Amino acid sequence: MHISLEGRNAIITGSTKGIGLAAAKGLAAAGGSVVVNGRTQEAVDEAVMAVRKMAPDAGIRGVAADLGTAEGCQALVDAIPECDILVNNVGIFGPEDFFDVPDSEWQRFFDINVMSGVRLSRAYLPGMEKRNWGRVVFLSSESGLNIPTEMIHYGFTKTAVLSVARGLAKRMSATGVTVNSVLPGPTLSDGVGAMLKESAEKRGVSMEQVGQEFVRKMRPSSIIQRIASVEEVANMIVYACSEQASATTGAALRVEGGIVDSIA
C-alpha cells in the first residue's frame, strides 16, 4: 500500500518532539505539506529543520503558539486559516496523587489536552466539509480506557478526547471527513527516553531492559512487553490521515501493544 498525501495540507499540534514530530515527518514523507507547532519559536525552528531534513521536497511551515489557551489556538488559525488534515496531538502528562492535584491543575490539563482539539476542530472542520474531504485525528491514550491511579487527572482528559472524536465523527457523517482517535501506550518519547537513559546509566544496563521492566511493572497486561517507538505510533496516524482510510471513522485505533485486555 502506497500512501500519498500530495496536495494535502496538514497541521500537527505539539509537534516539536516525540509522537508529534514523528507524525510530522511521516506525513511530510508521504508528500503532504506540514505545519509544525510548538510553544516557542526556537523549538519550532528546530523541528522544521528536522522534518525538512527527512523530506526536503515537502512544504514545511512552523507556527509558535501556546494551544493551552483560546488566544493561542486563534493565533494558529489566523496564521493557517485552512487545512485538510488536523492532528490534535498536543498534550501533557505527569504522575500526581489525586488528593494532591488542585483545581488549577485539572483545568490546565483539560485546556491543553481537550480544549485545544475542540477549538481547532471547530475552526477547521467547516472548511473540510465544504471541500468534501478532511482528516482529523485526536491523540488519546490507553490511559483513557485503563485510568491510571497515579494520573487520574490525565486519564480523564484522554477519555474525554475519545468522546469528542466519536461525537465529531458522527457529526461529520456523509461529508467525506473522517474523525478518529489514536491510542498509544508507553512510548519512547523524548521525556520517557531521558528517564530510561538516566535509570539505565545508574544501573549499568541497557535502555531496552529498563523499558521492558517498566512495562512489565506498570502495564503488565502488555502483549508486546516493551515500549513502542514514536514511529510505530506515527505510522497509525499517517494511515488514519490517508485516502486509504476513507472508511475508517469514529474509531479508537489502538497502538498500545495490547495493554487493553479487550477483543473490541
Rank of each mutant, 00 (worst) to 15 (best):
A58I: 02
K158R: 12
S242L: 02
I60F: 04
E198F: 08
E46M: 07
K197H: 10
S141W: 07
R166A: 13
V63I: 15
D45R: 15
L168T: 11
T40R: 14
R131S: 14
V215N: 04
G185R: 06
S246R: 14
I85N: 12
G7Q: 12
T40Y: 01
L120R: 14
M151I: 08
K53S: 13
S121T: 15
A10K: 10
F156L: 15
D97V: 04
V44W: 07
N9K: 15
A169H: 07
E213C: 06
G26C: 09
A23I: 06
Y239F: 15
Y154D: 01
V233E: 02
R219A: 09
D84V: 05
V36S: 06
V87E: 09
I263N: 13
W133H: 11
T187Q: 05
R61G: 10
G176N: 09
M195Y: 11
F99E: 13
V210Q: 10
V230K: 12
Y154W: 02
S116L: 06
V87Y: 04
D57L: 10
C73W: 00
V34M: 11
E42W: 00
R52S: 09
L196N: 13
V48P: 10
L21D: 00
E201V: 04
A251P: 06
V260N: 12
A22F: 01
L67Q: 00
A47E: 06
G155F: 07
G144K: 11
Y124Q: 08
Q41Y: 00
A247L: 13
L76C: 10
I223Y: 09
G91W: 03
V90M: 11
A65T: 07
G204N: 08
G91C: 03
P126L: 04
N132R: 15
A174S: 13
T175F: 04
E231T: 14
P102T: 01
G144N: 05
G62A: 07
I112C: 00
N180F: 03
G32T: 03
Q244K: 11
T248V: 15
H153M: 08
A165Y: 07
V118Y: 14
Q74K: 15
